[in-house]
Design a protein around this nucleic acid. Sequence first.
DNA 1: AAAGCTAATGTTATATTATTGCAATAGAGG
DNA 2: CCTCTATTGCAATAATATAACATTAGCTTT
Lengths: 162, 162
Amino acid sequence: MEEKSASFGFEQHDHNLCLSKAIQAAEDYCTKYKLQFTPLRRKVLELLLQEHRALGAYAILDLLRDAGFSSQPPVAYRALSFLVEHGFAHKIERLNAFVACTLSDTSHSPIFMICRKCETVVEAQSLSSNLNISAAAKAKGFEVEQTNLEAKGVCHSCVETV
Amino acid sequence: MEEKSASFGFEQHDHNLCLSKAIQAAEDYCTKYKLQFTPLRRKVLELLLQEHRALGAYAILDLLRDAGFSSQPPVAYRALSFLVEHGFAHKIERLNAFVACTLSDTSHSPIFMICRKCETVVEAQSLSSNLNISAAAKAKGFEVEQTNLEAKGVCHSCVETV
DNA sequence: AAAGCTAATGTTATATTATTGCAATAGAGG
DNA sequence: CCTCTATTGCAATAATATAACATTAGCTTT
């Protein structure tokens, strides 16, 4: 049952466990806030959790078809927008694609590290950086509501393989 | 000739001057590095400079048509990619749109503040934030090559108008 | 100037990403 | 069980972006 092969956070981890925990957390959150964690929404989140890469809406659509769901674009986009809205997933703007959220606490300002070789996306919590941003913004009278930092680069594994 | 009405950096400024300076700087840069600052490329940069908002490729295309250029998508995309590649403009990923660069030094890691009401985009230089990011990334073995921070919020003027 | 080269632009077609509007259905709450 | 609302299914289309190839403009070499 145990499987410690997948790379995450550029480190080894038990991916099955990470998936089931995330699903459980989403389920609990939805119960608490009376949101409908429908089969479709669950399935889309599972698909995202199976990867630590960003999946495009149409890639998800293909996987949904295989799973017996309708494969019209709005099906994927609606599920994704639910997941993003409630913090279970994020959109990676520069890839026009989506990743499951890997940090439990909501309302964070994530940093995404996107490997341009293997397309792995790792999410990190922003540190003091946001304070600087807010300060710089405040100086110009701008009220920051949400920030999104996408860093392109090369991950651990891909650096080695040149 | 002088006109100090437009808002920039959420402050008043002489927009004509800011436009002509930026064009001159681009011209100088292209001369220096033997790049062709063609009429089309100049026109697209001018169009971007006339706004402090992000313009989509198809909006630019419409304006190009008015100016007598071809209005097929590749025309705009190619000019834009030239401008982005050489640091004269940036792509705002969350808007799928483009803004003229307003900071003279190249190879910076920009922060964009995007007003969700008036769609004004203001560019700021990143402060120490990037250092934090690089540190966090390094800890995970990730080599950051490029970062892009887009902050959504409400600008000075729009805060007042509720 | 002619021939040959390279970079830029023009043109056609098409790929990719995303939304609108409306019909059918399932789930929550009385 | 019935009603109401949220969700899903479906068809059409909008918006964003690129590929492939032809043409033109500007240089370079002869």
